[in-house]
Amino acid sequence: MGGKIVTITSGKGGVGKTTATANIGVALAQLGKRVVLIDADIGLRNLDVVMGLENRIVYNLVDVAEGRCKLRQAMIKHKLLPDLHLIPASQTRDKSAVSQSDMIQVSDWLRPEVDFVLIDSPAGIERGFRNAIAPADEVLIVTNPEVSAVRDADRIIGLLEAAGKGPGKLVLNRIRQDMVQKGEMLSADDVTDILAIKMIGIVPEDQFVVPASNKGVPVVLNEESRAGLAYHNIARRLNGENVPFLPLEEEDGFLRKLTRLFSGGNQLLKQG
């Protein structure tokens, strides 16, 4: 049997695929799982910098596919988590350097050695995406609560179903509960209602995410971060645990304070 191959994709670029891959990978490793992350975005590699491993790259996925190195030689060990490895993409080649059967071959080599292989898919619906989903046992679709991102997610769900990989599970990223409450942002319920697939995680917009990527330290390693906690919960769900969804309210948000004020009754209201 062996490990599970999970591909993270989105259709639209810039919704947080690479950040999600890095964080779910780190969180799975924190749970004691053996994890390999594969950057399948040949020519536009990014997972190495998000992971803070960019200065350790010698070989990459294309070198493995073309037989220039052994699989082991292309696996970069994480600084803090020895059971977490990254196989980086090539930065100088393009999507045609890797085929679907290469991806299946690499995944088959890894399967007996690890618990999870996470594949970071490139944006789009062309060859790179096809390569990334070819070996997948499970697919996570990352989207944002915005019209264009949800539309592209719907297209991806259709393509996954056609490829026999569907329907996949949804990661709703960058949600702002204050805006949802004002009716100015699609809610998690709206998005599940529209896309009609299962949700595996709801990640709030979080001020710690950008500094984390600046430093190359995935936000899941920051215990203060609610986005980090959300990624941690996704990892646990992937691992088969039944974890309830986070309450999305900002702990000390303005609205939360007001709600508390009103639920306190009329006396408080008069003071306010």
Partner: peptide
């Protein structure tokens, strides 16, 4: 104060939903 407005109704989220459908 935005406390009575139900999520997804009235604001731009409603038109996002309608347009997406």
């Amino acid at each position: 104060l935005g406390l009575l407005k139900r999520a997804g109704r009235g604001g731009s989220a409603a038109s996002a939903k309608e347009r997406l459908h």
